[in-house]
Design a binder for these strands. Structure first.
Lengths: 259, 259
DNA sequence: GTTTCGATATCGGTT
DNA sequence: AACCGATGTCGAAAC
């Protein structure tokens, strides 16, 4: 697990250690200490001397953490070139990405700790409660939304995007369903509104058979913001509460093992 | 900087070390080794036994990293309760948040390394090229967008959101400007379209003075996707290229010091 | 506390 | 490579 570690390395030691460990391409390397950080790419930023923790993963991703928050101060999701050089007596990490052109430089002013960890590839990871899961569940049983509802299509492409669920209600009307796994806001309402308009236009153009009165729009989400609900009312659209996690999933497992 | 470190701690040692360091409320604590992770809250997830690096920051945020990517496998941005207990012979980290109710549990099956770092509060951080910066620049000089343009308002609220910039062109027409700091997509076009419609409706309702022919809509961004540009054409809206970073900022500094 | 919006969003899938 | 949409988005500002 722990491949190596240095305290208060000299610039040369740090440079050599990082060069060797990064060359291995399978180590997670960390450096903590007082650094300067410079970034230029999609935006540009400068962080003056301060204490940071740099993490370089074997996939070439780089992140620079301060003592606050889950989000790094600076980062580089992918790097095409990763190297450490000595400039003006300091070790400097240069992480470059070519498309989009981005450059991250970390000047190791006073490195206090550097170490290399070997993290083997992890076990399985399962996420429950994604929008994709909701969609699958509702597609297999549309009556969760409303009694008498039958599925027509999922991810039906329109000229303005894909409709999450298209169904037909007990009276034969088409129902456009827009899904959100979290609290739905006015943007979700607009998305739904666009889809409904698009389907209505399609029906009008196709000279829909008589008897099909209209097209309904349903926003299905575990919750909705007040403005979004108001807007739904104005537009003649509906809200249906559906939970992302089924009750079975929200219960604690009965025989949890470690948990 | 480095406050303490253990290799291959026993569950009791790990529990005691974490308990003490987390009690200090000013240390960044890391644990690396083979863990199991369980999350339940807005969604739910289980990560089976694998190698991970856990980072607990002094602000109570927790992140669990695998050997890939800048994004943690699991995380907790804020915690209301953070504790370590021993269950079934293993040390277990419990990170709870009350609103929304969320629970993160990390079972330390085989901790290989635990350490505590003290990161002092950093120096200044400056970011250039944000949308806010673009907005300020264009508000102070609307002619960057088009000759003869004068500013009417910024962040003007409508019933569907705030208009980034509202201006008047040389012919007296209102110009709704939507800003994007990155490549604009069809969602941005739709946002602009909504604002334009809203302003047009407002003018119609207010019985606009004769002579004001119409309302223009301009999407101002460094680039635009092909579908978005097509949609702009259909809707009778315009695109204007503006860069987020001024040429001076995109140039390398002439006397960079460390950089 | 709720809502909204920006972000160097990241990330994965599809075209 | 470009584009699109979800995200346990995060995080800050406005209300």
């Amino acid at each position: 697990m722990l491949r190596g570690s240095f305290l208060d390395p000299s610039p040369e030691e740090l440079c050599a250690f990082l060069g060797h460990q990064l060359g291995q391409r399978d180590a997670l390397v960390q450096v903590a200490g007082e650094f300067e950080i410079f970034y230029q790419g999609r935006a540009a930023s400068v962080a003056e001397a301060g204490d940071y923790l740099v993490i370089i993963k074997p996939d070439g991703s780089v992140q620079v953490h301060s003592q606050r928050g889950v989000k790094p101060v600076n980062w580089q999701p992918k790097t095409d070139d990763l190297r450490v050089v000595i400039e003006d007596g300091y070790a400097v990490l240069i992480a470059e990405r070519y498309t989009p052109p981005e450059l991250l430089r970390v000047g190791f002013l006073a490195p206090a700790m550097v170490q290399s960890l070997e993290l083997r590839d992890g076990g399985s990871f399962v996420l429950l409660g994604s929008e994709a899961e909701m969609q699958a569940a509702l597609a297999s049983d549309p009556e969760i939304i409303e009694a008498g509802l039958t599925l027509v299509d999922i991810e039906l492409p329109t000229d303005v995007g894909g409709i999450d669920l298209l169904a037909r209600d007990a009276e034969g009307r088409l129902v456009v369903v827009e899904l959100k796994r979290g609290k739905a806001n006015h943007e979700a309402v607009h998305q739904l509104s666009r889809y409904v308009d698009s389907v209505r236009a399609l029906l009008a153009g196709n000279q829909a058979p008589p008897g099909i009165a209209g097209v309904r729009g349903v926003l299905a989400a575990p919750a909705v913001t007040v403005p979004a609900l108001n807007r739904l009312g104005v537009l003649g659209l509906e809200f249906k509460e559906v939970t992302a996690l089924s009750p079975a999933e929200t219960r604690e497992p009965e025989q949890p093992g470690l948990f």
